[in-house]
Design a binder for these strands. Sequence first.
RNA 1: GGACUCGUGGCGCAGUUGGUUUAGCGCGCCUGCCUGUCACGCAGGAGGUCGCGGGUUCAAGUCCCGUCGGGUCCGCCA
Length: 653
Amino acid sequence: MRDAGSTTQLNGWVRRRRDHGGVIFVDLRDRTGITQVVFDPQIDEKAHALADSVRSEYVLNVSGTVRERAPGEILINADATFQDELTDDATLSAEFRSLFSELDTKYTLSDKININIREHGKHWLLTDIENNRTYDILCEDNALNIYQGTVNPELATGEIEVAVDTLHILNTAKTPPFPVEDDIDVSEDIRMKYRFIDLRRPEMQKTLEMRHKAALTARNYMNEHGFLEIETPILMNSTPEGARDVLVPSRLNPAKFYALPQSPQQFKQILMMSGVDRYFQIARCFRDEDTRADRQLEFTQLDIEMSFAGVDDVFDVTEGLMKSIFELAGEIPVQIPFLRLPYHESMARFGNDKPDTRFGMELTDLSDVMADCDFQVFTNALGAGGQVKAIAVPGGADFSRKDIEDLTDFVATYRAKGLAWVKVTSEEFSSGIVKFFKAEHLETAQEKTGAKPGDIMFFVADRPKVVADALGYLRLHLGKKLNLIDETQYNFLWIVDYPLFEWNEDQNRFEPFHHLFTGATENTLHLLDTEPGKVQGQHYDLVCNGYEICSGSVRIHQWDVQQKIFDLLNISAEEVKNRFGYFIDALEYGTPPHAGIAPGLDRIVMLMRNEENIREVIAFPKSQQGQCLLTNAPSTVTEEQLEELSIRVDVDT
RNA sequence: GGACUCGUGGCGCAGUUGGUUUAGCGCGCCUGCCUGUCACGCAGGAGGUCGCGGGUUCAAGUCCCGUCGGGUCCGCCA
C-alpha cells in the first residue's frame, strides 16, 4: 500500500475534512492509523461532488491511487549550486538557511532537520523536525526550486496520499460529542456514555491491542510451561471471609443465592486435589466493595496454581510470565529475578507493603533519638507505645507556610494529628519547635534522614499504623509533586515474610492477613497454639511502582492444619461444614502440596500504558457508583421477574 | 457510612460581594467562498429549562437545604 502508483481500497471513519473549494482532503482513520485521501475533480468529478457532503465520523469506502504527496507551491528559486549541500548529514550553510528566513519567519529552519534523497540529483525532501514542516526541493531547468512540502511528518502515512476515483459513503454519522483524537479534554462521564466513540481514539485502540497481547502472551507462556487453562464456575457459594460477595438469586432455589467469585480460590485448590498439577485461567473476579482509581467491581486475574511447588517455583514462573508480558506486549525490558523485601522492612522503610521504589525519601525511625527531647508531642506518643519517624524532603526548605499547612491537611486524612517540620539550612535548623530539642537531637535526625541544607524534615509521632500511613502517603504525594519519579522505570519487588494473621482491634480477634488457606512457614508453624501473631505466612505479593500486581501463597494442604486455622479464627464447626465442608473433605483425600498466585491483568496493562486509572484499560468500565454509563446497568427489573425469584424490594424506586 | 471537589449551548471553560449586559469566550456545528491543506483560511449564522427539587430575597447561574450524577480519598477491599 505504500507503493506509489498502486491502486488501493480503504475503509474507515472520517477524522476531519478540509474543503479547499477545488480539492477536498479527508483524513481517513481505521484501526491501523490515519491516511489522507484526496478528492480532486480532475481525477473524478463524481467522487469529488459526493465528498462535499462528507462529515466527521462518516464511514467511507474509497478506491484510488496511492501517490507520493505532490510538491506544493514554489517558494524559492535558488541557485543550482546549492544542491551540493543536500546530503545525508544535513548541515546547511547560513546562505542556504537565509533563503528561507528571508521569505517569511514561519519558514525559518530549526537546527533539527533531515534530508531525504528521493531521486538522486533531482528531488530531495527536507524535513524540519522541530517545526513539523517539509519542503520539496527539485532540480529543474538548471535551477533549484524549493516547494512548500506537502508531506506531513506527524503522520505515519504522511509521505503518501490516496487520490480517490471512487467513493462509497457506507454510512453517515451524527456529529460526535467529542473529537475522535488523542489528548482530548473531555469529562469521563461523557467518554463512558459514548464509549463506542471513545474507543475509536488511537490511544484507546492501542490500549485494547496491548491488553489483548498481554492476555495472549500469558496464554502462550502458561501453555509452554505445562499449565492447563480450566474454567471454574461463575455461580458459586458465598464465603463469609474477605470482601462482600456479589449475590445472584436462584430462581430454582427460592431464598438461596449464588455468589460471583471474588477469585477462583477454592476451585483452583480443588483442581490441585484433582491432580491437575498446573492450572491457570484468565478469570473475571467480582468484589462488591467501593471502587478506587485502581479498583473496579469486576476485574481480571491471571489465576495460577501449581502442585508440588513452593515459593521459589511460583516466583520462577511468575517472573518469567511478567518478563514475557512486559517485553512482548508492553515493549518494556524486565530484569529477573526480582528483588525480595521482607514485609516488616517494607513497612519500616516505606510505610506500606506496596512501595514505589523509584525514588528515595525513605522513612527513618527516630523513636530512640527523640526519647529524651522536650517536645511533648513526641514524648507523649512514645510513652503511649508509639513511634516518631521522619522523612527528609529535598528542596523542602523553600516550602511556604501554606505548603506545609496543605501537607498537614493531607496527613490528617490518615489520622495524623499533626505534621512537625524542621527546615535545614547551612547555618541552622529553623522551625517553631526547634526550642524543644537539643542540638544533638536535630543533628542526629539530620544525619539519620540524610537531610541536606535546603531540605525539610517532616516528623509524625503516633501509633505505628498512623505513622506508617501518614508518612508513607506523604512520601508518595511529594514524590509525585516534586517530580522525583522516573516514569520510564519499572521496579518489580517481591514482598515476602508476611505474618499469617493480623490482630483486628475492633473485633478483638485474629484475621487472616491474606486468606484462610495460606500456609505457615515450617519453622513458625508450632507457634500457632501459643503465639498466633508471630506465625509467619507463606504469602507473597509482587509490587511494581507502588501497585500490588500479584498476590499469592503456598496453601495449607493438611486438613488438620486447615481445621486449626478455622478454630483459631473462631469459625464455628457448623459454619465450616456449611461453607467449606467439601473443602475440608477434599483435603483428607490426598491433597498434594500446592501454591499459587494471581497477577492482576488490569493493573499490569495500566502500568504498561502508564495510566493512573484502571478505567482507561477496561473496554467498558463502571463508574465509582458501579454503574455502566453506557448501558445504564444496574437497573430495576419487573415485578414478574422479582416474583419468580421470590424477592421483595424494600425501597422506593 | 464519611470528607473534599466538579456539574453553565454538542465539548472545554469564564461569569466579582446576589442586580448592567440580551449569560460571555474558545473549539465544534450550519451556510457561503476558496485547488495543496493537514489545528486549513475568510465571511456570516444557529444553538442555553445555568444537573434536578425546594427555600431565602423586591431580585438567584451566584446564598441556604435536599437530591442526582462524575472524580479523588478515608472507611472498606488484597
